[in-house]
């Protein structure tokens, strides 16, 4: 079973050199810590910036420069700024290579639920989640495979309100990596738990190991 940082390292290793990438709030932000210094990966933040640098500290903090989580950040050489409509046009128009998002649930068909629990007293707040889910060329989800009470989060059908339909390409979890697509749910790698045990605990049909090896994605 992987730690959060091990999951983040796995995602980072699968991001092609020079890719344009948006990292969602929460677990996905850890991916930035694991990108190689010479990866050339350009991070997009939806509040209007490309080539975002690491979090700002001390004298680097500038109230005019934050990420989508409103955390002060820095800029890297070659950064650019643009307004919100351009930032989301960039996303919706398919110009971002990869988006990494957190998830409450992912369905076997690649539907994503990650914005709202649907509880009667919950205040709905979507932010950029729906735009991100359908915008990037490829969408990776990072989440634990089971809830704290042991319920699977990779499910036949999402029970939480949806963020996007058939939008998830790959799911990175603490127990396994899954590819979603025309062949259904394909187990790419496992971490401690075998495919048979996974098949027992999940209610979705699983195909065996994919032929693709990690880290072989082409830009």
């Amino acid at each position: 079973m992987l730690t959060k940082h091990q999951m983040a390292a796995l995602v980072a290793a699968d991001i092609p050199r020079g890719a344009f990438v948006n990292l969602g709030i929460g677990l996905p932000t850890l991916v930035a810590d694991h990108l190689a210094a010479d990866s050339g990966v350009v991070l997009h933040t939806e509040n209007g910036m490309l080539n975002m640098g690491p979090a700002a500290h001390g004298e680097q903090i500038d109230p005019d420069l934050t990420n989508a989580g409103k955390v002060p950040v820095t800029e890297l050489p070659g950064a650019s700024y643009f307004h919100h409509a351009d930032s989301f046009a960039m996303m919706r128009g398919g110009h971002l290579d990869i988006c990494v998002l957190g998830g409450f649930q992912v369905s076997a068909a690649g539907d994503l639920a990650n914005w709202h629990t649907g509880e009667p007293d919950a205040i709905p707040a979507v932010g950029g989640a729906m735009d991100l889910a359908i915008g990037a060329r490829r969408v990776f989800v990072m989440m634990t495979l089971f809830t704290k009470t042991g319920e699977p989060k990779l499910v036949p059908r999402c029970t939480y309100p949806l963020t996007g339909l058939a939008c998830v390409d790959r799911v990175y979890t603490d127990h396994a990596v899954f590819e979603l697509g025309a062949r259904g749910v394909v187990v790419r790698e496992t971490f401690g738990m075998g495919v048979e045990e996974l098949a027992e605990r999940l209610e979705v049909p699983l195909s065996g190991f994919a032929s693709a090896e990690p880290g072989r994605d082409e830009a």
């Binding site: 939806e46 307004h83 409509a85 735009d131 915008g135």
Partner: peptide, 15 residues
Amino acid sequence: ELEVVPQGTLAERMR
């Protein structure tokens, strides 16, 4: 009253 709009759609509707 609350109308929740996806962030990119909010920007584009004003655009």
